[in-house]
């Protein structure tokens, strides 16, 4: 039973965090967030699991395959992965 309690509490904490962050961000913050550049998202996101790959590591075709692989495997939002990989393809 304790197991469920802890699990329940953790889920609740995540729920509260969501509501909290939702409630605490103003429209300007959301707009700023939505306007982040692909380069910035590349720096922030691609480093979360492994090192940030250099755009020069692959050609555009390969990056398109990797884009799909990472979007699914790393569970990235379409919004963010699209921007990151558009940036990578423009910078290699």
């Amino acid at each position: 039973m304790k197991t469920y309690k802890i699990f329940g509490i953790a889920t609740a904490v995540i729920g509260i965090l969501t509501v909290f962050t939702l409630g605490s961000c103003s429209t300007e913050q959301v707009t700023a967030y939505k306007n982040k550049s692909g380069a910035q998202l590349w720096g922030e996101n691609c480093i979360r699991c492994h090192n940030t790959p250099s755009p020069a590591a692959y050609n555009d075709t390969d990056w398109t395959t990797i884009e799909m692989h990472m979007r699914i495997r790393a569970n990235l939002s379409k919004e963010q992965s699209e921007k990151v990989f558009d940036f990578i393809r423009s910078a290699n």
Binding site: T21, V30, N75, L76, S77, K78, E79
Partner: peptide
């Protein structure tokens, strides 16, 4: 599975 933005947070499931 999937992911989406909520405000300035990202949720994945």
């Amino acid at each position: 599975r999937g992911a989406f933005r909520v405000g300035t947070s990202t949720i994945n499931y």
